[in-house]
Write a protein that binds this DNA or RNA. Structure first.
Lengths: 120, 120
DNA sequence: TTATTGCTTCAATATTTCTAGAAATGACGA
DNA sequence: TCGTCATTTCTAGAAATATTGAAGCAATAA
């Protein structure tokens, strides 16, 4: 993944409206929401939101698909994973023991214990 | 963690020089580097770097400590973990099965298999 | 075709950010 | 006190971003 895309993702999340959109879409899951519905829920003008959605898409944090006359936006979980992988990979760089502790503390947050007890 | 801090962290990483500083410090580990040394390695003027370091500190991505006449900067791993926890926690929200897959794919990146086979 | 809805794109403006140099300040060690 | 290391404050120009109204495009319904 290029630094370009990476910074686009970070920049996209560094703005209140877009952070709110991101959270909303993550919670809505893969079905997503039409752009107009997002605008209504967050009380943001349609064209303003459209610009923000474009920024989020540029950072690969959301994807869009057409459905009738609606454009449905959904969180791009692959994009989120990319972000996390970057943070952990760089974090592990040369210091795997640090990363271990990090991942350990991460697992309970998912409301489920870790898996894959033995697998390289 | 406040949205404020969260956005500060994302904003801090959405800039080439600061991304480079962050990477450098992550790789240097807890010992960190003096501000002047960072400036020299990345070929950035001292005052410019100082401003960037302040932004990174505001996002809790680096910490500083005094050592003689040097100010040592080091990555703040707690801050990184906070960031990851935010991404995963929000990701899990209502859809733990999605998060599971995400964490599974994350573990191998650390060069070590998961632990904690059974723990809530 | 015409009208309407849903959304995007364009154009313009206001605001913020990045960058760097120069100078002042502060903290420390010799 | 003097020299070093670092931060802070000012300056200023270039670039990026946020926002809005108006216009444009796509899909549907009449």
């Amino acid at each position: 993944m290029s630094d370009e895309t990476l910074m686009n993702a970070f920049a996209a999340l560094a703005q209140p409206t877009r952070l709110a959109v991101f959270r909303l879409l993550i919670r809505e899951g893969p079905d997503g929401l039409p752009a107009g519905e997002i605008a209504r829920r967050l009380n943001v003008p349609q064209n303003t939101l459209s610009a923000h959605l474009a920024v989020l898409a540029r950072g690969r944090l959301v994807r869009s698909r057409r459905k009738g006359r609606h454009v449905i936006y959904a969180a791009d979980l692959d994009g989120v994973r990319r972000l996390i992988l970057f943070l952990t990979r760089d974090c592990c760089h040369g210091r795997p023991e640090k990363c271990e502790a990090l991942v350990d503390s991460l697992l309970p947050a998912c409301g489920k214990a870790g898996k894959k007890p033995e697998q390289e």
